[in-house]
Design a protein around this nucleic acid. Sequence first.
DNA 1: GTCTATATCAAGATAGAC
DNA 2: GTCTATCTTGATATAGAC
Lengths: 181, 181
Amino acid sequence: MASSVLGGLTPRAREIVQAARGLLDEEGPGALSMRRLGERIGMRAPSLYEHVRDKRTLEAALISVGFEEQAALFTRATDRSEEPLIAVAAAYREFARRQPHLYRLMTERPLHRELLAPGVEDAAALPVLLAMGGDLERTRALWAFAHGMVILELNHRFPPDADLDDTWRKGIEAFRTMRPA
Amino acid sequence: MASSVLGGLTPRAREIVQAARGLLDEEGPGALSMRRLGERIGMRAPSLYEHVRDKRTLEAALISVGFEEQAALFTRATDRSEEPLIAVAAAYREFARRQPHLYRLMTERPLHRELLAPGVEDAAALPVLLAMGGDLERTRALWAFAHGMVILELNHRFPPDADLDDTWRKGIEAFRTMRPA
DNA sequence: GTCTATATCAAGATAGAC
DNA sequence: GTCTATCTTGATATAGAC
């Protein structure tokens, strides 16, 4: 079991969460309704409530899995890298581009941290913090830059002629070369 | 007339857009329904359609006004400033904090540029570009940082103990001290 | 454990009377 | 120009039968 979050569920609940993930990935958060979810696994929507508490809890499970995947991806990217900051930024962007809908779900609303699997958020943040030499505020500033880049791109807010690879490079360079406080 | 966007509307349409702005500012995008809007100005929802094409067009009018306000605010902040980059960043943050719901409306979805008043988007961007010495890609990187900071703060995504003033300072410093490409 | 039926709520938009 | 009535769609969630 790659995910300890999924591993902690009953088989039917796991099936539901996995179906939710498929629906989310394929059609976005707007398509993630209990009805559509029921359709996907051949069950009426009301029956889902026998296995998952409510929709918020279901979304929290998806978010927990997302954090697990980020933690693995970021750790792999920074391990043995000579430029961990560049590597983790590339990994961050890659995660968001490959799973844009999950990324939105994870960032566009307040986190219900009490519904998350314990520790998953910190586990995802740790490799980024290490890549920034342990400086919390600089790490958050880098995160803001990376999130801004990713979400503005997903929202098609950059002008069509923007050279985003170059923008990424210059932004990262700003953080990489700044002298420690 | 402070706004050329509002100035171009019939009186009734202007009244509707202004009521929409009030509703948005007070209760957020979720409360901005044609029904609620009708209530606010003492008119049934269907009658609104005599004055505004549809909801998307109405939202686009609000966004155009937002860009006008940003342009004025950013220009005022950078004029005669000795540190225009710091000044424009502060103004950007101030705009978002003072009108969080309008800010969301302006950034969280793809822009329907064809529905905007011509030129308003560029007018808001220009003072930022000037503050960055005319470098487009660096300006976009700064924008991504500022947007990331603002939207993560609005979404309550930073941990409660985060010192956001300090994070802003460090992020801006990274961009301010970076050597030109 | 799953079903049907239903409660409740809210949305955008149109037809046609006045 | 505004109204009432309505269409169409969709959501989360519960009650109670099987």
